[in-house]
């Protein structure tokens, strides 16, 4: 069963990772969900697929009241990221999903209301959560053509969707990266294949190098912290990705 773990906090402003599910079915890719909360208001980042909804919902309920989840953020349109939206919408018909406007006609196939999707402009936008501002920053073509990450300046945390993802063996269930050199081997193939553009990658790297980041949280695999964040950015900078 999944478990929510506190990974960063700043007074009442808290980030929980709902990471790694040893009980999931083998044929499903393992995913990490993240929730940022002020207690009264919570934003769920990449809520996951419909198949993992019960596990995510139960884990989340241990640390916050799920009724406080009024908004979800979807980094992109993949089913492992957002196919549970219909179930969240059933639970709370007023829920809003912030996602690239590119996916406005696609994501409703997972089920939601006419007003559920809130389009994020291509250049990104800020979201207010309690007294804090979250920055939705562009990461287009990494790997999806309409793709965003979340930066929280208060906690110095960057949620990166598929960037930084690693397809780890089941036995490797650490929440954080413990041995970067070993870990990155499980990320290399994924990034070469799924990240489509070196130009887009350069642009993202220029953008994130300007941010102060202590935690980099991907949707698959372990979380990078401290010096491993910079190590990852340098490694990604040198990696040739995509085709041609």
């Amino acid at each position: 069963m999944k478990k929510a773990q506190l990974i960063a906090s700043c007074e009442q402003h808290r980030w929980y990772a709902i990471a790694r599910d040893p009980a999931r079915a083998d044929f499903l890719i393992d995913t990490n969900e993240y929730v940022v909360t002020t207690g009264e208001d919570s934003l769920l980042c990449d809520p996951g697929g419909a198949e993992v909804f019960p596990a995510v919902f139960a884990a989340l309920s241990e640390v916050i009241d799920p009724r406080s989840v009024r908004r979800v953020f979807s980094s992109h349109q993949d089913p492992d990221v957002i196919s549970s939206l219909g179930l969240w919408h059933d639970f709370n018909p007023d829920i809003r999903c912030h996602v690239s406007g590119l996916w406005a006609g696609f994501i409703p196939h997972f089920g939601c209301g006419a007003d559920t999707l809130v389009a994020i402009p291509d250049a990104g936008v800020n979201l207010t959560l309690g007294e804090r501002e979250l920055q939705l920053i562009p990461a287009h073509y990494l790997h999806s053509s309409g793709n965003f990450h979340v930066y929280d300046p208060a906690c110095k945390l960057l949620f990166t969707g598929d960037v930084g993802a690693a397809l780890l063996p089941d036995a490797d269930c650490n929440l954080f990266v413990e041995d970067f050199d070993r870990h990155i081997r499980f990320a290399e193939g994924f990034h070469k294949r799924w990240m489509g553009s070196n130009t887009a990658k350069k642009r993202w790297i220029e953008r994130v190098r300007q941010l102060e980041i202590e935690l980099m949280c991907p949707q698959h695999g372990a979380i990078y912290r401290g010096e491993d964040v910079q190590r990852f950015i340098d490694w990604f900078d040198d990696l040739q990705v995509g085709y041609g």
């Binding site: 069963m1 419909a50 909804f53 019960p54 919902f57 139960a58 309920s61 179930l87 059933d90």
Partner: peptide, 13 residues
């Protein structure tokens, strides 16, 4: 309650 949650999700689907 966990069982109820799993069962309710399955029912919703």
């Amino acid at each position: 309650t966990q069982q109820l949650l799993t069962s309710a999700t399955s029912r919703l689907q």
